[in-house]
Amino acid sequence: MLPNTLGELELGVLEALWQEADLDAKAICQRIPAIRQPSLSTVQSTLERLHRKELVSRTKSGHAYTYAPRVSRSNLLGRLMGDIIHLLHDGKLETILSSFVTVAADLDDSSLADLEALIARKKQEKALA
């Protein structure tokens, strides 16, 4: 439904990698805030998932892998917003979120010009009143 949606831990891992790339799982684990600090094996499986989703790249370094993000924060947000626009288009989010901008969708040029003329006329009327 939301192809680019990530879990809290996946986001936490990405956040750690955005702050400093080329880290191994142990270093990432230490950089995740203490309140939700997961075990090393949980971080490893999260990294595996992120790798499968092509959100991180990895390089073999001795016995372990080091990881780097393949998407930036704004890139990920852009993807998420793309999902939202698609779902709004399909009417699948209408009960969850209301949007000002996406409903302002395509009109043809002549309709736009008509609306512009209407607004201008109203402005003129207000100025004369």
Partner: peptide, 20 residues
């Protein structure tokens, strides 16, 4: 360009109706 073309064309009457 990264935004989907079709995603923007779903509610044109809304904007027109709202402005009017």
């Amino acid at each position: 360009a990264s935004l989907p073309q079709d995603a923007m064309a779903f509610a044109e009457r809304d904007v027109e109706a709202r402005i009017k």
